[in-house]
Design a protein around this nucleic acid. Structure first.
Length: 468
RNA sequence: GCUCCCUUCGUCUAGUGGCCCAGGACACUGCCCUCUCAAGGCGGCGACACGAGUUCGAAUCUCGUAGGGAGCGCCA
């Protein structure tokens, strides 16, 4: 039987790093084994679920390229099915109605804790022979086995055994007519013919309960793989202050989706010493059973490094499409003037870890030069050789008939030779003239990207500054 | 409190009894390259949580301790 997995977020917020990693691992395991990846929205919590969150999750998955083969399915559209399944269990004697109020349950729990015991339902209605009655507190509870234990082989954590005595009779159908999580997932995973449940390890505790429900329903139990959590840089649970932001924030911050995927796949999984993986390679090499067992911290610096590796080695035309998005965000339209974004990528790809940073640096060519760094002016435009250097290079540049980085490079070299100085004596004043600072890409690209007319105009202004 | 899970450099990890006085990557750092900044090359710093045991031999197996995490909801 071919593999079927699902990613089942609850729409109570955006898709964050932890969810994205879970989705990625499901997706990779499925692609690797040639099966179907299903997206299911677990929206039975009506208080906290929102349409905006559903859209945010869909957007995040789309940006990352984790497309589903089926779905999205919505639990709220399957209410009849849960009711039917729950009532079926009651008829079969595997579940029963109970009528305690929330207050009574709360008191029960408090009493247990006070007595130093594990808080659990006391099973009052478990063997009650009371006839079915209408009651606003009526729920359906699962008749959990009281003896023996549940054993399962987790593909990541290994063998896990749980004594049934530790489990109480959980509510599977609420008084408001909605199923509870532990019941709905089982019914869904059965109906959707899920063969491999890959999810966060905060669910291992739920697994024994769910397995008992599978048994009660007379259905085969799927394989489980519980992924360790992703922690914030400080080792604490991911919070909004670091990491737990929407994956879309990473797009806004200038990361390539593929770079994020690469970072995420290595966070908790590895293949020897390899750090960089194309999506195709991930699919080929990934096996969820090889995932690590312990939690990992999120490290923005390593993500940035990976991002730069792709900015550097991807096809510049491809990178430029992403850069263009950032330029547009910044209010720049390259079709109206300024350098070709592809040329900008070529000049800056070794100097920017993010596209955001690249877009920022590119502003020197897209916007008029308005400010000069004082120290740069003092050091390079007021130098004794500055004026002759600028005049010399201006003449060479003006004479150029071809506007290419190579030609500009040649012009600067000739200009330096003409005044008997090294490249540095010409390049630095020229750099300040073009950018107003002493830091920029190689001087030939820096001048080239400005365009001939603008380059000459900026040199003229520098000459004036140098004189004054 | 109870149950379950986890523990190799600051971080991500390799490692499944001898190849490991522990390898790679990020970060930090020294040198080289150089028109600035980067990128790159060559080095450096830096870890098997602790304690018993099994074994000729343990990062690798067992037990215990400590620390961390998750769960114990009519939330998912």
């Amino acid at each position: 039987m071919s593999i079927r997995t699902r990613f089942a977020p609850s729409p109570t917020g955006y898709l964050h790093i932890g969810g994205a990693r879970t989705a990625l691992y499901c997706w990779l395991e499925t692609k690797h084994r040639g099966g179907e990846f299903i997206l299911r929205i677990e929206d039975t919590d009506r208080e906290r679920s929102t349409d905006a969150a559903v859209q945010a999750i869909l957007d995040g998955m789309g940006w990352l390229g984790l497309s589903q083969d089926e779905g999205p399915y919505y639990q709220t559209l399957r209410m009849d099915r849960y009711r039917e399944a729950a009532e079926g269990l009651v008829k079969a004697g595997k579940a029963y109605y109970a009528y305690e109020s929330k207050e009574e349950i709360e008191a029960m729990r408090a009493a247990a804790i006070a007595a130093g015991e594990k808080p659990r339902y006391n099973g009052h209605y478990r063997d009650s022979s009371e006839p079915l009655r209408d009651d606003p507190n009526r729920v359906i509870r699962f008749r959990n086995p009281t003896e023996g234990s549940v054993v399962f082989e987790d593909r990541i954590k290994g063998r896990i055994e749980w004594a049934n005595a530790e489990l109480d009779d959980l509510v599977i159908f609420r008084s408001d007519g909605f199923p509870t999580y532990n019941f709905a997932v089982v019914v869904d995973d059965i109906d959707m013919r899920i063969t491999d449940v890959i999810r966060g390890d905060d669910h291992v505790n739920n697994t024994p309960r769910q397995i008992n429900i599978y048994h009660a329903l007379g259905e085969p139990v799927p394989q489980f793989a519980h992924l360790p959590m992703i922690l914030g840089p400080d080792g604490q649970k991911l919070s909004k202050r670091h990491g737990a932001v929407s994956v879309m924030q990473y797009r806004d911050d200038g990361f390539l989706p593929h770079a994020l995927l690469n970072y995420l796949v290595r966070l908790g999984w590895s293949h020897g010493d390899q750090e960089l993986f194309s999506v195709e390679q991930m699919i080929e090499l990934f096996d969820v059973g090889d995932a690590n067992v312990s939690a990992a911290r999120f490290d923005l610096e390593k993500l940035s490094w990976i991002n730069q590796q792709y900015i550097k080695t991807d096809d510049p035309a491809e990178v430029a499409t992403h850069l263009l998005w950032h330029l547009t965000e910044a209010g720049i339209d390259p079709s109206l003037g300024g350098p070709d974004p592809v040329d900008v990528v070529i000049a800056l790809r070794e100097r920017a870890q993010t596209l955001r940073e690249m877009a920022d640096k590119a502003m020197v060519w897209y916007l008029p030069l308005t400010t000069y760094d004082e120290a740069a002016v003092a050091k390079h435009l007021k130098a004794p050789t500055a004026l002759p250097a600028l005049h010399s290079v201006r003449a060479q540049i003006e004479a150029l008939t071809q506007w290419k980085p190579e030609a500009v490079h040649e012009a600067i070299k000739v200009a330096a030779e003409a005044i008997g100085e090294g490249m540095g004596k010409v390049a630095q004043p020229l750099r300040v003239a073009i950018t107003g600072t002493q830091v920029s890409p190689s001087i030939d690209h820096t001048v080239y990207l400005a365009g001939k007319d603008e380059a000459l105009a900026r040199i003229d202004r520098a000459i004036a500054l140098s004189n004054g």
